[in-house]
Write a protein that binds this DNA or RNA. Structure first.
Length: 502
RNA sequence: GGGCUGGUAGCUUAGUCAGGCAGAGCGUCGGACUCUUAAUCCGACGGCCGUGGGUUCGAAUCCCUCCCAGCCCGCCA
């Protein structure tokens, strides 16, 4: 990317500003399962546009609407069987899987909102069940009931399918069984603000327009636009398809609610490298908290913000993650994306993640203070202890869970069999180093002398390093030799090098 | 079946709206640095811009065909 390229968030902000100065950027996710980094794209995208608008002086706010009033669709694999009884009930009315939250919806929503805060995203949060109970939807519900036929016509025209003759934009919650997926509207009273229904469970009843049920998704979505004055909204490509819910929503918004639909931002899925799209139900997903264990929040933002929303993101938590973090740190990519990725808690560091991964493996066993020492010796700034601690934690977790074997190393307890491949000259070089160490030369000094040793042994430097690593790690390469040697027990190294040189 | 989005260097991609010499980062290779390979700096290699056609003086860009990937057409970002 070059400097002339405008960042997508700025392009959108400019387009949107041409329509007016006051804006609401909306986002929303159904908290039906653990919210993963794929879901995160919605909110991060919204936040990027929100910030771009704010930077351009717009009067803008960011909202997040949690669809807590949606029914539970099925018993997901991560749920116990007893949840069969709750299928069809609103998420806000189902018990919490762990027992410590107010409801099923809160169980997934609360950690998600916490994660948002750590990403520096602070939307005004609304819960659909509360909005309905507070009566925020009453006007929209009345209009939808009265204009039922017109809405049905729009949906069948745009979506190209016939609706059931008894289709209704409102789903009442059954007073008996608590489900909203099994009820049919049989009548309504605009004055009393009530709706009559019959339920598949055999009961009939009357509910209030304030919390007694909800609008069906295709109507709920456009209904909420005027309620919040939404002018910009990102949504997944599932909603964006021709005849999909944005298409119907657009017309319902204009023709039924007399409101200009928001500026659409269609975003693609985040795929797990080589495994397909993320889905919490299939277990093929990385949760936000898992992600934040291995990278700082700014990097998670950067992952999403550097890419245009309509491109899918191939996320590779393996070796490629190192590149992502280092690219972010060096601001090698898109400067504007970097800027938009900042959080208040951002702590820039000059220590490459790659280097931290190495350092942790050398120094961790001797404690955090030693890690700092090693870093300082390598010439890095260590005044921000907290930032270093965070990065070290990230590196450690990454090594544990996602690192490919090629970046891992361990000092071998016994002489690695690979030393058999050492040449006579290499053995000689190791003997010289062992000798120097024994006479008190530190690893640091060895480090400065390495080429002299090579010359003495009649080798080029490369071969000497190779010998050092083979003797200690059983590998052909490793962390910077001098400091590495200095970090190990001197007697141990001497013994090992002598052993290897025999 | 119908539709949406994407397909540009080994990898990640910018440029496509408004046609004007195809750019960057990573990786690779080579070199420099008398503190190195996972450190720094410099340089090079690397592209029928998915395919085939059309429009045009000129196409990655516009139009049509087909192929590939993912998704939607039942409320799974």
């Amino acid at each position: 990317m070059n400097e002339e390229t405008k960042h997508w968030a700025d392009v959108i902000a400019e387009n949107v500003l041409a329509r007016g100065k006051k804006h609401t950027v909306a986002s929303g996710i159904t908290p039906s399962g653990a919210i993963h980094i794929g879901n995160m794209r919605e909110v991060v995208t919204a936040d990027a546009v929100y910030r771009a608008l704010r930077d351009k002086g717009a009067d803008v706010r960011l909202i997040y609407i949690a669809d807590t009033f949606d029914p539970l669709r099925k018993v997901y694999p991560f749920l116990p069987k007893v949840y069969e009884n709750h299928v069809g009930k609103p998420l806000s009315e189902i018990p919490c899987p762990c027992g410590s939250h107010k409801s099923y919806a809160e169980h997934f929503l609360v950690p998600f909102i916490e994660a948002l805060h750590s990403l520096g995203i602070k939307p005004d949060v609304y819960r659909a069940d509360e909005l309905y109970r507070q009566g925020r939807y009453v006007e929209a519900i009345k209009i939808a009931l009265i204009k039922r036929d017109a809405i049905a016509r729009i949906i069948s025209e745009v979506a190209g399918r016939e609706l059931e003759p008894d289709w209704n934009p409102f789903n009442p919650i059954c007073n008996e069984c608590g489900r909203l997926s099994t009820t049919k509207v049989t009548g309504f009273d605009i004055e009393k603000e009530t709706i009559d229904y019959a339920c598949a469970c055999g009961s009939q009843g009357t509910v209030s327009m304030r919390g007694g049920g909800k609008l069906t998704w295709r109507v709920d979505w456009p209904a909420r636009w005027p309620i919040f004055g939404t002018t910009v909204e990102p949504f997944g490509k599932d909603h964006a398809t021709a005849g999909g819910s944005y298409d119907t929503g657009k017309r319902i918004s204009k023709e039924i609610y007399d409101y200009d639909p928001p500026y659409p931002i269609v975003y693609e899925w985040i795929m797990l490298k080589g495994r397909g799209a993320m889905h919490s139900s299939t277990g093929l997903a990385i949760s936000i908290s898992e992600m934040l264990e291995i990278v700082p929040p700014e990097v998670l933002r950067y992952l999403i913000i550097r890419q245009k929303p309509e491109k899918h993101i191939e996320f590779d938590p393996g070796l490629a993650l190192l590149n992502l973090v280092d690219e972010y740190d060096r601001v090698e990519g898109d400067r504007r994306a970097y800027q938009l990725s900042q959080t208040e808690a951002s702590r820039p560091t000059d220590i490459p993640f790659r280097h931290m991964v190495t350092t942790v493996q050398i120094a961790d066993e001797k404690g955090f203070d030693y890690l700092l020492t090693v870093l300082r010796r390598s010439g890095y700034e260590i005044s921000d202890i907290e930032a270093i601690r965070q990065r070290a934690d990230n590196a450690r977790n990454w090594l544990l869970r996602y690192a490919p074997p090629s970046v891992k190393f361990r000092v071998q307890e016994t002489l690695p069999p690979q030393v058999k491949s050492l040449t006579k000259e290499q053995k000689h070089a190791l003997a010289i180093i062992a000798d120097e160490l024994e006479q008190g030369m530190t690893g640091q000094e060895i480090h400065e002398n390495i080429y002299k040793v090579a010359q003495e042994a009649g080798l080029d430097g490369k071969k000497v390093f190779e010998a050092v690593y083979l003797a200690l790690l059983g590998l052909k390469s490793g962390p910077r030799a001098g400091h590495f040697l200095a970090s190990l027990d001197r007697d141990f190294v001497v013994r090992r090098f002598k052993e290897a040189s025999e």
